[in-house]
């Protein structure tokens, strides 16, 4: 860790209360992020990536709690902030683009009005000034400024997602967390949104945590990636290292299951079995039941994360035996 880290997460664990018991959804995840960097958090549904994001934003639902860990952001631990300090932080320093853009806008308010509200309340801008800023933002995200006076239902899914992005950047935060921000969109619109995000990233030197299940999309926009499985980070490193030379059996198998646009019609191999449910997570390596290399040793304790190349680490006991 550098002397003055911009952002890092250390040993973050989140648990959910179900009935009387607590179940851990995120186990001691750690990663860091440099200023201006795009970091991907990838994994299949249920792996804990969205929960991790919500914990970082301190926006967890009521039945979830952070058991331990640090989320360090620009000189302070976010987990120790009180509600007032958090409100000051949200949108202004870190903002989130949510998964369901279709449900995140108020249907009875004009789109521009919803961004305006943030500006007037948080920045104390007068209406005229704030409206100018809204129009400026609309130009930035590639929608005609006049459309700011329309209602959400008059916008397409892609445009609504653009509005969510405008809202996220309206107070010039330096960190954006994007949770599955293109999931419901078509490839063409998705590509448009991705280009927009890349442009904004360059223009404002934004740092981004990009949460997605689509590995190809992650590899397209991110500098580094962490792969999650059953609440743990199983492998992390520069995108090209992780996806071209995956070390963890899970990541290797997942990549073999992805259809390619360029190679022939090679047989794709599914990973046998299903990920463990929240209640079933065992003492040892959670991938063991599906792993072709696992043995008895793997069932005793959780494998630690080992650095296998500069900046590239994986959590597996069998790494030596695997070809990397």
């Amino acid at each position: 860790m550098r002397d003055d880290p911009y952002f890092y997460v250390k040993d973050l664990s989140v648990e959910f209360q179900l009935g009387k018991n607590y179940y851990t959804a995120v186990h001691q995840i750690s990663f860091d992020l440099k200023k201006g960097e795009t970091f991907g958090l990838a994994g299949e549904s249920g792996c804990g990536k969205s929960t991790a994001a919500m914990a970082i934003m301190r926006m967890l639902q009521d039945n979830a709690r952070i058991r331990e860990g640090t989320v360090w952001f620009q000189g302070r631990d976010i987990l120790s902030l009180n509600q007032a300090e958090l409100r000051e932080l949200w949108w202004k320093e870190m903002a989130m683009i949510f998964q369901a853009s279709l449900n995140s806008l108020n249907p009875v308010k004009k789109v521009g009005q919803q961004i305006l509200e943030v500006l007037t309340v948080r920045e104390g801008m007068n209406n005229k000034l704030a409206w100018e800023r809204v129009e400026e933002l609309f130009t930035l995200i590639g929608i005609q400024p006049e459309r700011a006076r329309d209602y959400p239902h008059e916008f397409s899914g892609g445009m609504r997602q653009r509005v969510m992005i405008a809202m996220a950047i309206c107070l010039n935060p330096s960190l954006i967390i994007a949770d599955e921000c293109t999931t419901a969109l078509d490839v063409m619109i998705q590509a448009q949104i991705m280009n927009l995000m890349k442009d904004l990233n360059k223009k404002f030197n934004l740092s981004m945590i990009f949460i997605n299940h689509d590995l190809s999309l992650i590899s397209d926009v991110c500098d580094r990636v962490a792969m999650m499985y059953a609440g743990r980070i199983v492998e992390s490193g520069p995108v090209s290292d992780v996806f071209l030379n995956p070390a963890h059996p899970y990541v290797q198998m997942l990549i073999k299951a992805l259809p390619s646009m360029e190679q022939g019609t090679a047989q794709l191999l599914p990973i046998p079995g299903v990920p463990p449910r929240l209640k079933e997570i065992s003492a040892g390596c959670s991938f063991l039941p599906r792993c072709p290399y696992g043995d008895k040793g793997c069932s005793l304790e959780v494998p630690p994360s080992v650095e296998i190349a500069p900046g590239h680490s994986a959590a597996c006991f069998k790494i030596d035996r695997l070809s990397i």
């Binding site: 063409m188 998705q190 590509a191 991705m194 280009n195 190809s216 397209d220 071209l244 992805l258 360029e262």
Partner: peptide, 19 residues
Amino acid sequence: VVPTLENAGKKKTVLTGEI
């Protein structure tokens, strides 16, 4: 425009507008 592990990071020509 289909993102794949092979064309990652390359700038893609994207059609403007929507259907």
